[in-house]
Amino acid sequence: MDNLVTIKNMTFKRGSRTIYNDISLNVPRGKITAVMGPSGIGKTTLLKLIGGQLTPDSGTVEFNGKNVHAISRNQLFELRRDMSMLFQSGALFTDISVFDNVAFPLREHTHLSESVIKSLVALKLQAVGLRGAANLMPSELSGGMARRAALARAIALDPKLIMFDEPFAGQDPISMGVLVKLIRALNDSLGVTSIVVTHDVTEVLTIADYVYILAEQKIIGEGTPEQIQQSESDLVQQFLQGKADGPVPFHFSAPDLSEQLLGASS
């Protein structure tokens, strides 16, 4: 299969803490790949590694056949024109309107006339259902609308890859439904490759073509949504079914409670 992103034997540490230990994964071109896992295991870090904002301690990350971490800063910036990222917060620029936010990458990277930019922005906003909100400021948008506006900005330059960082976090059911529909529709209509990082199991399994589950510094499960749901791994099943206790313990590692209490009283 033709892969747009290939990660080979990657290890990444923050200080002495290992986030990823020798992981390998592929993101097939034109598909939606979901990366799931418990909070705090470094899902966003993975996107930053793919985008070249962080550098792995060992191993390689290739985007479109190029090693992201073995190229110059200028070449990396050139490469990033083919990828975009939808941040968890939306990361809209708060001092400019929704229209200007979506027009921003077009003004920065193209020499299109203002009238063409105006038409393109209208089309991008139409695609996410926010054409009527073009003149609003980001502070006037709801959380879901802000994320859709950020999505319009993310697709402004027609990238090859869109990385979604927790797109469903904190959304009401309607906004969540809208975002799920948008991710699938944009992927199909624009032919882009999508990586969706999330821990919202139900939503993502309905749209993903391939799923990776990360935990304990490595990939603990992968496959199509059907294969993942039938996985025999206790860890995968605990995550999918949201069990409070299991291989991932409810209690954070600590000394024995009775020992601690008796020790304190003595």
Binding site: G51, Q53, F77, E78, S84, M85, F87, Q88, E108
Partner: peptide
């Protein structure tokens, strides 16, 4: 994340 988003927008 506005600075990060700038970087990701090249």
């Amino acid at each position: 994340e506005q600075l990060s988003s700038l970087e990701m927008m090249a």
